[in-house]
Nucleic acid binder design. Structure first.
Ligand SMILES: [Zn+2]
Ligand SMILES: [Zn+2]
Ligand SMILES: [Zn+2]
Ligand SMILES: [Zn+2]
Lengths: 163, 163
DNA sequence: TAGAATTTGCAACATTATAACATTAGCAAA
DNA sequence: TTTGCTAATGTTATAATGTTGCAAATTCTA
């Protein structure tokens, strides 16, 4: 899985979605939290690709579904999903992406391709540690870290045609 | 300067501002760019503290100055200042802070105190390198990195009274 | 089933950012 | 010094993103 990991190469994405939903159900059960239809639907939409989706994009699809939804509907669902570690917010894009490491406790590092828009989430303990050290040198107690790297993914480096 | 660096302890902040403005003039000259009155004023406002300032906060002060300003005025000035490396945008706060490393080429790492709101910018080559490595492992070519850590600064860890 | 707690619907509003186009200031060649 | 170019600013409107507050409905618990 090292060079050219999942979102950057063709894969059975339906399996991604199915697995994400299954894991979500398990996790919510463990947390004694209710994965209601709206929340599950939002999660499914976020997972429709590995490109982050904006809250209002989600809203638009819900509306097209016939769901009578307003912004708070979406933001509440997204808050819930974030709280249970099922999605991450990408601050530099104001958008949301499904978490691909729901099993481990982690601080995600996100590789965002400027060209195709896909995002790969890494666990990158080396980076976390380096940040921890830098913070410790300043006697700063880290709580949460946002690490977002934009650039060009392997697919877009080689190709001339993009998605 | 290691433990308890600048923004987190009392310091002569006027000197911070003066230095920032001086460096800005130098840099703009070098870049053949015009540090117009509006741009300089915005930079000065951003530097009024080590707490990031929102675009509309800047706008409000400009208005109080008697300057007939609209949002584009501020955003344009901020774009200019960012382009010349004089301010950074903190994505997780939608706010702007003066760059404290205008001399070196750098990717900033920001320690954001949840309690007092101050931000300390570090250069942290160790972190940059770790990120580069993680990206290289995925054959990803990094372009720009956003590294923002929120937590508690040394001042707020010890004190019970905050700013 | 009654009561409590969580979730949703809904309306209005707040904040952040950009588009489009007219106007002006700075500068240099004719 | 007038002309013409470019960068910078003014102006208006609008887009995009995110929140608050309260009432109704649903789900859980006892
Ligand atoms: Zn997939
Ligand atoms: Zn994750
Ligand atoms: Zn200072
Ligand atoms: Zn900087």
């Amino acid at each position: 899985m090292s060079p050219s990991a999942l979102p950057y190469r063709p894969h059975n994405h339906d399996a991604c979605v199915a697995q994400a939903l299954t894991e979500a159900r398990t996790i919510c059960q463990q947390h004694n939290a209710r994965l209601t239809p709206t929340r599950e639907r939002v999660l499914e939409l976020i997972w429709q690709s590995h490109k982050p989706l904006g809250a209002y994009d989600v809203l638009a699809v819900l509306a097209a579904d016939g769901h009578n939804a307003a912004p708070p509907t979406v933001y509440r669902a997204l808050d819930f999903l974030q709280q249970h570690g099922l999605v991450h917010r990408i601050a530099s894009l104001n958008a949301f992406v499904g978490c691909t490491h729901t099993d481990k406790k982690h601080h995600g590092l996100f590789l965002i391709c400027r060209c195709c828009g896909n995002v790969l989430e890494l666990t990158a303990p080396g980076v976390s540690d380096a940040v921890q050290n830098a913070a410790a040198d300043e006697a700063f107690q880290p709580d949460n870290m946002t690490i977002e790297v934009s650039g060009t993914c392997p697919g877009c480096t080689s190709d001339t045609t993009h998605d």
